[in-house]
Design a protein around this nucleic acid. Sequence first.
RNA 1: GCCAGCUUAGCUCAGUGGUAGAGCAACGGUUUCGUAAACCGUAGGUCUCGGGUUCAAAUCCCGAAGCUGGCUCCA
Length: 649
Amino acid sequence: MSAAEPVRRTAGDLLRERGELTDDVVAVKVRGRLVDLHTPVPADAPIEVVRRGDPDALPVIRHSAAHVMADAVQRLFPGTQVTIGPAIDQGFYYDFDRPEGPFTDKDLAAIENEMRRIIKAKKPFYREEVSRDAAHRLFEGMGERYKLELLAAIPPDETISLYRHGSPGRPEGTWVDLCEGPHVPHTGHLGAVKLTTVAGAYWRGDERNPMLQRIYGTAFPTEEELKQHLELLEEAKNRDHRKLGKELELFMFHEFAPGMPFFLPRGASVYHRLIDFVRQLYVELGYEEVITPQIFDKRLFEVSGHLENFLENMYLPITAESLEAARKGDVGGVHFLTQKPMNCPSHCLIFAQRRRSYRELPWRVADFGRLHRYERAGVIHGLARVRSFCQDDAHIFCTPDQIESEIAAFNRLLFAVYRAFGFENVEVKLALRPEKRLGTDELWDRAEGALEAALVSVGVPFEKLPGEGAFYGPKLEFHVTDALKRSWQLGTIQLDYALPERFDLEYVGPDGAAHRPVMLHRAILGSLERFYAIYLEHVAGKFPTWLAPEQAVLVTVSERQAEYAEQTQRELTARGLRVALDAGPDKLGAKIRTARLMRHPYIAVIGDDEVAQKSVSVRSRDAGELGKMSVEAFAERLLGEARPPEVIR
RNA sequence: GCCAGCUUAGCUCAGUGGUAGAGCAACGGUUUCGUAAACCGUAGGUCUCGGGUUCAAAUCCCGAAGCUGGCUCCA
């Protein structure tokens, strides 16, 4: 630092001068930005103190924990190189290049112990700002080639900062990392740490790069909070849709069809009711539904561009005849077939089936067709990521000046639907042009602009995702998170100028001339399979009465009431209700237990009293004991809840 | 696809080189019972599959499949 430069004081210095520096201060916030105590701040800036218990302290603690972990790793496993190690939502990770290969669970335990030693020693963190050259020399000397690569990627005008923390047992006394911060004042702030898993991760997230060893962990100010976090994870596991799907007999998988769910009778019942719900919306919103083929000649997907852009995700079925021809080398006898991964090309064929008038637009065509996409092994995940699924898919063919209102209307609809299912936290993302795409830049400018304009007009906050659009157009994505806080896309709306062009679609305008329509691809629930997964977790297996496979279960106190119970079941079923019956020899307590585990909305007990009074004793899953009521009153109550939620007013 | 782990009865899980186990579920019997598990009994397994090492493999080694946690890719 040259003499001419004014002395720059750190946030820590300022607080100390003001006598506000207590040991529980982890960092500060300056104009909304999280800054640690080691970093110089403008003397006149308003400072907000962040203490150990504050939510803002967590990322600081975790990022520091990542450093301490890397320190421990390098101490225990010399020759291991460090790369990056950020704080994340649930904790932190650090990626290492370890020549000896992956870490084992035993290694994790050893690393954790080493971390505890460093934490216990309450070693201070230091920040220093250095020149690019000095940093280069430092990491070159240490043989940290990943850090050199990171250093080279820092823009020239940015400050280069190093963070050290005291490391008991290291010859140089400290462990150093190229890092922006922020970090805690000393290692003692890392109250409770836990390393959770090891995983492979590509350097810089590119699968062509070498695979690094990632260690995930988490950290909290206190053991108590860590314990709570671990309990929360345990609870989340209990509502994992894969576990619930098995327990509630909703769906299954088999290795003969990996990634392709089998919906069991109870699960299929829910699935069909979801479709019914969407179908009802379609009636009200002016959609028409079609049914289209599964398997096509390859020419369809040549025209659509899928063969060029989506081939690695497509199944190519083959007939025995073609297989035989191929074996004989008879190329002309081989029929190249394609299993559809999307419905849009079919709908283009239907649009082009006859002359279309502008008076028909917007034409909204829906399709619950089953789609198949080949997904690489390792990416499939319960119902949330499958190889065979169906979307509540529809395409809107419209004129260019109908785009914005269609998109805005769809946005409003989608939020209303999600709200009806109890999803309040929906994240909206605008996915922009990918590298591999159809159409000119000018078309993409227009398409992206239109989506953004619609979002602005509806007034929802959104995030832009460069390069994430579909190959035929930009998309709006609507995301919600699963029980384990993984974010999944549900609905989408995509704007497409390319397919109408490729299929040479036209409508006759008021001027009598041919015009090119625009296509909107949209789904509300998205993949029904994925929606099913997320929703099942969202309600923890407790489907509302309108969706539940059985809306009530009748249980008898003894087998003596079986006849009356059967008659009651028939009466309720005749009124369109779904009612199960448990008239077996078990004791009432056991039947209640079974019924509760199956999460039936209502349990109706039938004993001698009920038979005599022509009643049932009702217990609601959500509202508790309701007492005796007539069968008629029970039916009325069920019928009142059996209607799907109203979305459109 | 890549890295790591897992796979034992329908389900949840014990079993680390020497005769495959438990609980629940199923089935049979007894009990006829009032709001989260009655009692007794019976049956059920090529220990995912294929190779290898060994006198001997659920157990050790190699390969495959499926699943799990990540990475990459995506609804």
